[in-house]
């Protein structure tokens, strides 16, 4: 219980920080947001009208107060300038697909990173270990969207295994359409994870209990199972640390595969200069990251009594 209290002590200031940061994010840049939204051909009158609509004519303190009260009491994160819909419902309508893509990416990331890290750690300093350490160096240098294009080229076009764009309808189709994009995100996500996880596993493999298990002549696969259990905590917390990166990568990949999720909403709002929607998406995603980090910390604490006690 002490652990929960301490975590909340960190979560609350960050949540407030995020809400404040989003408010200032689009206001720090010199110039008038209203003029920026309307572009070069706007008249002074139309700029003034938009300033009033957005509340930009009010003093900054008042604007900030309104924003905080709106967010924290009514969950009001603004209204779209283009469709006049509440930003919250716009985001909600697209969030499902993006969430599904993120989840699938996490599954693929674990499936790629954990075995590779195991392999490298159990062959420490051997040729396999070096190979597993060199490949991520190349992987880190690849822009994820470009990897996506290569996957389309190989699996979609040459082999005709998987759909290459958009999201199909019908039973199982949405999931099938998300395989390639999720794989792309997972390939981008795995390199740093493999590296970090390998370090953790090397430590676990050196631990006294593993030596004891070996001495007891336990079959190697059963030792691996024990090692994996001990690696579960670090894997979850590494995924938690990288969730922001994961979500960002997912949004970009949506563009490559023409998926109509939050990324698509973000990019279309940028081209229509829909300021409140961009702001709202940034807020929702950052709060999601805060929540997920908190939850992963909780899961790690559940998995490992040592963390709870610390």
């Amino acid at each position: 219980m002490r652990w929960v209290g301490r975590s909340l002590l960190a979560v609350v200031p960050v949540t407030i920080g995020v809400v404040l940061a989003v408010f200032f994010l689009l206001r720090i840049v010199p110039g008038d947001p209203a003029a920026m939204i309307l572009g070069e051909r706007a008249t002074t009158a139309s700029i003034e009208a938009l300033r009033q609509q957005l509340g930009l004519d009010l003093p900054l303190g008042r604007q900030l107060g309104d924003w905080l009260v709106g967010v924290f009491t009514r969950g009001d994160i603004g209204t779209s300038l283009v469709t006049s819909q509440p930003v919250a419902s716009l985001v909600a309508s697209r969030a499902g697909l993006t969430a599904l893509l993120v989840l699938l990416s996490v599954v693929f990331t674990v499936l790629i990173a954990v075995p590779l890290a195991m392999l490298a750690a159990s062959h420490k300093d051997g040729p396999l270990d070096h190979l597993v350490r060199v490949v991520p160096t190349i992987g880190m240098a690849m822009p994820t969207f470009w990897v996506g294009l290569l996957l389309i080229l190989v699996f979609g076009v040459n082999l005709h295994w998987l759909p290459v764009g958009g999201v199909g309808t019908g039973p199982g189709e949405p999931l099938r359409s998300l395989v390639l994009p999720a794989l792309t995100v997972a390939l981008g996500m795995s390199p740093p994870l493999v590296r970090a996880l390998r370090e953790q596993l090397v430590e676990v493999l050196d631990a006294d209990f593993v030596v004891t298990l070996r001495a007891a002549r336990l079959p190697s696969w059963r030792i691996q199972a024990h090692v994996l259990r001990n690696a579960a905590g670090p894997t979850v917390s590494l995924l938690g640390l990288n969730v922001a990166y994961l979500i960002g990568g997912t949004l970009v990949i949506e563009k490559v595969f023409a998926i109509n999720g939050l990324g698509a909403l973000l990019f279309s709002s940028i081209s229509t200069r829909d300021f409140p929607v961009v702001q709202g998406i940034a807020l929702v995603l950052a709060l999601t990251v805060v929540l997920v980090s908190f939850l992963t910390d909780a899961v790690v604490a559940l998995l490992d009594p040592r963390v709870r006690a610390a």
């Binding site: 960050v14 920080g17 995020v18 940061a21 994010l25 922001a244 990166y245 994961l246 979500i247 960002g248 990568g249 949004l251 970009v252 973000l266 998406i281 940034a282 995603l285 950052a286 709060l287 990251v289 805060v290 980090s293």
Partner: peptide, 8 residues
Amino acid sequence: VAFPFYVL
């Protein structure tokens, strides 16, 4: 850190 890099 809470903001996805590309979103920010």
